[in-house]
Structures are given as C-alpha cells and as structure tokens.
C-alpha cells in the first residue's frame, strides 16, 4: 500500500510534514537530512527538486534552490542519491517541484524512477488540474504515484470537490494567498478558512502549508486539519546551524512533543 495513504489511516491528527530542497545546504545532504528527519519523528518529508524559476516560492526557498542548483543538483543525481532510500526510510516520501524539469526529463521516465526509489506522491504546483486529467493521470496511476493538488482560500467550492475526487492521498491546503514563507502567523480568518474546508467533509485528508513556522502556527493549523507542512522555517533552521543533525533535532522538537518518535 502507498505509504502516504497508510500514514493517514494510522494517524489522522497532527501529521507533521517537513519540506527541504535537495542539494541544500550541501549537494550530498539529501540522505542525512532524510535520516535525521525520520529519527526526529516527522511523519512525512517533502523532497524539493530545485528549479531555476520557482514562481510560487518566497526568498528562502528561492535561495535554497539557487544554492542547490549551483551545488550541481539535478534529477539524475537525486534519484541516484535516493536509490536505496527505502532500505532506511519508512515514513512517507513526497517529491515536490515545478513542471518544466519534469517535462524535460520525460514525465513517464520521472514517475517510473520515482516509483522505483519508493517515493509515494508528487506535488507540482504549476501542473493544472485540466492538464493532469488530460495528459498525465493515467501515467501517475500506472506508476502508483499520487498527485497532490493545492487548494487556496480562493478556490471555489465546486472546484474543491472536483480536486477531492481527483485526489487519492491528501490535499495540500495552502493557508494563505501568498508565496511560501511570506507569512509567519495564522490569523482568525485563516482558521475560519480551515474550518470551512473541514466542513466540506472531503474524502481526502488535509495538510495545511505556507506560513507554518513554529509550534504555535503548527498547532493552530492542526486544529481543523489533519496536519501541517513546514518549509521555509525549516530551511532557515538548516541554514543557521551547520550541524545538520543537531539543527533538525532541535527544530523538530521545538514543533512537537517527542512522544511519537519513530524507531
């Protein structure tokens, strides 16, 4: 069974997912970061595939992408680095990146290699729903990679239901109308939005992301969702402490209690 689906069957509250950019801070940090994140007790990791022009990202993730590309990160290397990832990592693994690099790599070849390495799902913020349905849905299903859609405070209700019907793992609830890392608090208005979406009783779990940066915002986001995703704040933490393992341990324990620690 798909590990991401399995995760939500076992755990429907306070799922913590952490995003990092592959190739940052160092070209070969990928496996170390994954291992440390698992050890610290996160439930899911989003591995960012750096792109030269990340339109939906704020300065922190832009910077990490720029550094990663300068370090020499590319898709072949990422798949090479994560070839044996499932010998060590049991938590849910999601890839995240923009469409153009996937198009150049070949969407089918990409999905095939992602599946071989044991990735569960893929987030492509600039892949439109229509293009997914028309051109790529069959390929995603063939390789059993779940496509994760985003919804925002502005997404109309009918569209949310359509996205729910097309989704089969979780839905990424963008907490605010902004780029990543643009906001660092969760307002009452945002809580109302989370509540509104929860009231739609969708078949897919909801993970909130964008602007979740610490324990307080994580808890607020989790109050009406199944969990939350932290990106920019984690990248910042990696940048500030050169001891990656320690930085990760400190960061994750500042967000959640150590009671759910995995092996």
């Amino acid at each position: 069974m798909n590990r991401t689906k399995e995760l939500f069957q076992k755990k429907s509250k306070d799922v913590l997912s952490v995003y990092f950019t592959a190739g940052f801070p160092d070209l070969n940090s990928t496996m170390d970061i994954l291992l440390s994140l698992q050890k610290s007790g996160v439930d899911m990791v989003e591995v960012g595939m750096p792109f030269s022009d990340p339109l939906a990202d704020g300065p922190i993730i832009q910077h990490s992408s720029e550094v990663a590309l300068r370090n020499g990160m590319n898709l072949d290397l990422l798949f090479e680095q994560t070839k044996d990832v499932r010998k060590h990592i049991t938590i849910s693994l999601v890839l995240m990146g923009y469409l153009n690099p996937l198009l150049q790599y070949g969407v089918e070849k990409f999905l095939q290699r992602a599946a071989e390495n044991g990735f569960d799902a893929l987030i492509v913020p600039d892949l439109p729903v229509r293009e997914y349905e028309f051109y790529y849905k069959d390929l995603f299903e063939k390789y059993k990679i779940k496509n994760i859609f985003l919804i925002t405070p502005d997404t109309p209700k009918e569209r949310i239901h359509k996205i729910d019907a097309l989704s089969d793992a979780f839905i990424y609830l963008v907490s605010t109308l902004g780029t990543t890392g643009a906001k660092t608090n969760i307002s009452d208005e945002q809580q109302d939005y989370f509540k509104r979406i929860a009231s739609y009783q969708l078949k897919n779990p909801l993970l909130a992301g964008f602007g979740i940066s610490n324990k307080e915002t994580f808890e607020k986001a989790c109050a009406h969702t199944n969990g939350a995703i932290i990106g920019s704040a984690f990248i910042k933490a990696l940048e500030q402490d050169k001891n990656t393992e320690q930085a990760i341990k400190n960061f994750v324990s500042s967000i959640k209690q150590p009671e759910h620690i995995h092996k």
Partner: peptide, 21 residues
Amino acid sequence: GTPGVIHACKTMLMQDVYGQI
C-alpha cells in the same frame, strides 16, 4: 530552444537538459 513551460505558458524556451531555464 526546445518546448517547455516558462511563466505559466507552454512554448519554446532556452533551457538545459534538466529543464533549468
């Protein structure tokens, strides 16, 4: 150039083999 997506549009663009613009 080769086909790809730039600024939300599928068109011809200058990019490397990994789709970095």
